[in-house]
C-alpha cells in the first residue's frame, strides 16, 4: 500500500527519487524546496520526517518490477501503466485533506503531547496517581507539567471533555473512530495503527494518513477557537513557518534597501548564504521583488533560449550559452518562471 502513495508522487516527466524522498521527510535545503515546487509536491514537504529511505528505495524497485515506474538517466517516471494506476488511485485511495497543514506542526510531537495530556487529565478525573504514563520525550513531559500548573486543575477535566466533544462533531466517521480509539486513559489502552487498520479494513498507511490529517486539523481548529485549553500546547509544536528565521531577517534588510553585499557584511554571513535566503524567500513569498535581482534584459535572453520547458537545460548548458550568468540568477529566473508562467 505504501507503494501506491509513492507512485502518486511521480509523473510522466522524470523526477529524481532522492529529491522526492527529501520532500517526504522535509530535508530543508533550497534545492529540495525548489524541486518540491517544480514537482508540485511542496504541500507534502515534511509529511513524514521518520520515513525510512530503505523502505522508499525498496518500493521504487518494486514499482519498477511491476512496470509502473521506469528509470532513465534523468530520473524515475510513470509508465503508461503507472499513469493509469495513478488515475485509479486518486479515486480509491485516501487523499490528504489538508496538505497545506502538513508542515505547519511537528506532528509526532503533537501526537505525543496530546495523548499524554488526555491521559493525565483522564487519570486526574479518576483521582488516580498510580499509572504508567505513555513513553514520551522529557521535553513533552516537562511541557505537560507546565501546562497543568498554568491551568486550574479542577476545571481542566470538563474543559478537555467538552472541547473534544465539540471537535469530533467536525469529523467524518473514520476520522472520528481513529482519533478517538487512539486516545489513552484510565480505562482505555488505546489501539495501534495496525489494530485500527484491521478493525476498519483500511491499510496501515491510510489509517496513519487519516490520523495525521485529523491531528493537523485539530491543531489548526484549536488555533481558530477564541478560547481553547489546548492553545498553549499547540503553540509549542507549531513550526515557525517554512521560511527560516534567518531568511526572514535578510528580507528585512532588503526591504530597508540594503544590497546583498552590504547585508552579508552587516550580518557577517557569506554572500552565498544571503543568496540562498533570497531563493528561499522567492519560493515562499509571492510578493518577492524579482526586479531587484533580475534585469528584464536577462529575463528576455533566458526566455528566448529556454522557451516553454524551464527544466530542460542544466545550469552548465546555460552557462555555455551565457558565460557571465551565475547559478543564483539562473535559479531565481526558474523560480520566477514557475510562478509567473
Amino acid at each position: 500500500m505504501i507503494e501506491d502513495y509513492i507512485l502518486q508522487m511521480f509523473q510522466e516527466d522524470p523526477r529524481r527519487p532522492n529529491v522526492v524522498y527529501s520532500i517526504i521527510i522535509g530535508r530543508n535545503t533550497v534545492s529540495n524546496i525548489y524541486w518540491g515546487m517544480r514537482y508540485n509536491l511542496l504541500d507534502y514537504f515534511g509529511m513524514d520526517p521518520q520515513f525510512s529511505n530503505m523502505l522508499f528505495r525498496e518500493n521504487i524497485v518494486k514499482l519498477q518490477k511491476n512496470k509502473l515506474l521506469d528509470e532513465n538517466e534523468v530520473g524515475v517516471k510513470l509508465t503508461s501503466l503507472g499513469l493509469e494506476r495513478k488515475k485509479k488511485l486518486k479515486k480509491s485511495l485516501y487523499q490528504v485533506k489538508y496538505p497545506k497543514l502538513m508542515n505547519q506542526y511537528r506532528l509526532n510531537e503533537w501526537s505525543e503531547t496530546l495523548t499524554l495530556a488526555i491521559q493525565v487529565i483522564s487519570e486526574l478525573s479518576f483521582t488516580n496517581r498510580h499509572y504508567y504514563p505513555i513513553m514520551t520525550s522529557e521535553l513533552t513531559k516537562f511541557n505537560i507539567k507546565r501546562w497543568l500548573s498554568n491551568n486550574v486543575k479542577e476545571k481542566l477535566v470538563s474543559q478537555v471533555h467538552s472541547e473534544l466533544e465539540l471537535f469530533i462533531k467536525e469529523l467524518d466517521t473514520n476520522a472520528e473512530l481513529i482519533f478517538m480509539n487512539k486516545l489513552i486513559g484510565h480505562q482505555l489502552n488505546g489501539l495501534t495503527n495496525k489494530q485500527l487498520a484491521i478493525e476498519l479494513t483500511l491499510s496501515e498507511i491510510e489509517t496513519d494518513l487519516i490520523y495525521r490529517d485529523t491531528m493537523n486539523y485539530f491543531a489548526s481548529w484549536i488555533e481558530q477557537q477564541e478560547q481553547s485549553v489546548f492553545k498553549e500546547l499547540v503553540q509549542l509544536i507549531r513550526n515557525k513557518g517554512i521560511i527560516s528565521e534567518s531568511a526572514q531577517d535578510t528580507m528585512k534588510f532588503i526591504n530597508a534597501g540594503l544590497s546583498v553585499n552590504n547585508i552579508a557584511r552587516k550580518r557577517q554571513l557569506k554572500k552565498s548564504t544571503i543568496n540562498e535566503h533570497l531563493l528561499e524567500l522567492a519560493m515562499f513569498d509571492d510578493k518577492f521583488p524579482y526586479q531587484l535581482f533580475l534585469t528584464s534584459e536577462l529575463v528576455g535572453i533566458l526566455t528566448k533560449i529556454i522557451g516553454g520547458n524551464i527544466d530542460q537545460y542544466s545550469f552548465q548548458e546555460i552557462q555555455e550559452k551565457i558565460p557571465e550568468i551565475d547559478f543564483f540568477d539562473y535559479r531565481l529566473y526558474q523560480i520566477y518562471r514557475s510562478k509567473n508562467g
Binding site: 488526555i118 487529565i121 483522564s122 478525573s125 479518576f126 477535566v157 478537555v160 471533555h161 473534544l164 466533544e165 478517538m180 480509539n181 486516545l183 486513559g185 484510565h186 480505562q187 482505555l188
Partner: peptide, 8 residues
C-alpha cells in the same frame, strides 16, 4: 470512549 476517559 468519553465515559471510559473521564469520570464526571
Amino acid at each position: 470512549i468519553m465515559t471510559k476517559l473521564f469520570q464526571k
